[in-house]
């Protein structure tokens, strides 16, 4: 079974994240970068499935050159190889463009299963799995907290507010995972050494026969008009409990008409 895991490099949520003043895109130099956390769960699930059923895991990343660090980390967890789409023309692409690029690569390299995180920590759109399924015309098995593959049948538990739905489809398919699904492994020393020799194919927009005018900021269907730092919240009242903290809290709630 050939599995492709889509991995995005994102700014560390602990570091300060900024938008660039010149074009309102994410300032990727300003913050430390790492693998989008949920994508580690996607990698782990891919590794478990190929360990059980045979096959290979390919990492697919669309992003700047710096993203090679994240690709190496994914390979050191145990993935077999990687495809890195990088091109200055991609700067500022929105989800529609990114999904088109990823769909194009998938068409080229072939796959039985694509696994994504259900959401990235920077864009937080949570749309890519649905966009890919739509573009490729294959089943969308998103928000999976459990995945089972049996031959060409695949079933998942799809997490929902009320609990979960069980959903069935057949391969090839798109899966996105939630963090409840597994516990991602740490790269071993052996894994880190092996990763250095694993193949990474680099592709440009031209390699994919994609038009640069249809990508990046210019090709995107959304634009940022303006942005501003959120004004700090007005300082509130803080009291120390001296046996009456609960009553004081109740008074506050009553004054605000919550009770």
């Amino acid at each position: 079974m050939n599995i492709v895991v889509c991995v995005k490099q994102v700014p560390d949520t602990w570091s300060e994240r900024k938008l660039s003043d010149s074009d309102s895109t994410l300032d990727r130099e300003a913050a430390d970068a790492l693998i989008n956390e949920l994508d580690e769960y996607a990698i782990e699930e891919g590794l478990r499935l190929t360990e059980a059923n045979g096959g290979e895991v390919t990492i697919l990343t669309v992003g700047p050159e710096k993203a090679t660090e994240s690709i190496r980390k994914a390979l050191s967890m145990g993935a077999d190889k990687a495809v890195h789409v990088t091109d200055p023309g991609l700067h500022g692409s929105d989800a529609l463009v990114t999904s088109e690029v990823i769909a194009k690569v998938l068409g080229r390299i072939g796959f039985d299963l694509v696994i994504l995180g259900s959401e990235s920590t920077d864009a937080r759109m949570g749309v890519l799995a649905a966009m890919l399924a739509e573009r490729l015309g294959i089943p969308q098995l998103s928000y999976a907290s459990k995945v089972e593959v049996d031959g060409t049948s695949i079933t998942i538990n799809r997490q929902a507010d009320y609990g979960y739905d069980t959903v069935a489809g057949s391969l090839p398919a798109v899966v996105s995972v939630v963090e409840k699904i597994n516990e991602p492994r740490y790269p071993s020393f052996k894994g880190i050494m092996a990763a250095k020799k694993k193949p990474v194919e680099t592709l440009s927009l031209a390699d994919l026969e994609l038009d640069a005018a249809a990508a990046g900021l210019a090709g995107s269907a959304t634009e940022v008009a303006s942005f501003a730092a959120r004004p700090p919240r007005q300082a509130g009242t803080v009291v120390t409990d001296e046996g009456d903290g609960g009553s004081k809290a109740a008074e506050f709630l009553a004054a605000r008409k919550f009770i």
Binding site: G245, A249, A250
Partner: peptide, 19 residues
Amino acid sequence: DFGVVGDLFKVVPQLIEEI
């Protein structure tokens, strides 16, 4: 907007009682 510095096991039961 409103904070109580205290042990939630003391503050919350009192709050529930008041409500």
